[in-house]
Amino acid sequence: MSPYDRLAAMGLELPPVRKAAGAYVPARLAGGLMFLSGRGGAGADGKVVSGRVGETVSTAEAHEHARSAGLQLLAAAHVELGDLARIKAVVKLLGMVNAVPGYREHPKVIDGCSELFLSVLGEAGRHARSAVGVGSLPHDMTVEVEAILLVDA
């Protein structure tokens, strides 16, 4: 089953790739590695979701935001590669959670993205990962996730 078939079976579609919010690109291919710029979760309207986890946003809501960020990452990879089947492996994820001091559930939040990658990419979606808390994120995003992929060049 292709990544696109898996997305369809989950009732998901790749969203349009949001424009960069600064002087950078959504994806950069370097040999067999693709570096994907950090993406935040988006609501049904495509706008970035904001708030602070543990204050105005629950862990469960932030988990969904991380899943949405994962969809954004897959969309950026699709635009750059033309075919998600070219992804041989997700090498590393870095997930950042805009959370209150003392918050401890960062891994549960970023699992939203990790679980999506496993569901869509199968074993190629298994990866190393860091999940960290931060005091703030651009546009007051709840989460931001970036990825490094191994791809067919």
Rank of each mutant, 00 (worst) to 15 (best):
V120A: 12
A60V: 15
G135Y: 04
L74D: 14
P16Q: 08
G70V: 04
G54E: 07
E115I: 08
L84H: 02
L81T: 02
E146M: 13
A20P: 13
P3F: 02
G112F: 07
V151M: 01
D5P: 00
S130E: 11
A23S: 15
A42Y: 03
S2D: 00
E123M: 01
L71T: 12
A131T: 15
A44R: 04
S68V: 03
P138N: 09
L73A: 07
L14R: 11
H63V: 10
L84G: 00
L137S: 08
C113E: 02
A42E: 11
A8S: 01
S58T: 15
A77C: 06
R52L: 07
P16T: 09
V97R: 08
H65F: 08
G135K: 04
P15N: 13
A21K: 13
V79W: 15
Q72Y: 04
L81K: 01
A76K: 04
A20F: 11
G133I: 10
L12K: 05
L137K: 07
A42M: 06
R126W: 12
A99M: 11
D140S: 08
K88Q: 08
E144L: 12
S114H: 12
S119K: 10
S37P: 06
G95Q: 04
A124T: 01
L71Q: 13
H127D: 15
L12I: 05
H65W: 13
A147N: 09
P138V: 04
E123N: 01
A60R: 13
L29I: 06
I87K: 00
L149C: 00
M34F: 02
D152G: 02
D83H: 01
Y4I: 00
C113T: 07
A44E: 13
Y24M: 07
A69K: 04
G122A: 00
E55K: 13
S119H: 08
L14N: 10
K47A: 10
D140F: 02
G51D: 12
E55H: 12
V53F: 14
S114K: 14
E144W: 05
S130M: 06
D5Y: 01
G122R: 00
M1V: 02
K92A: 09
E144C: 10
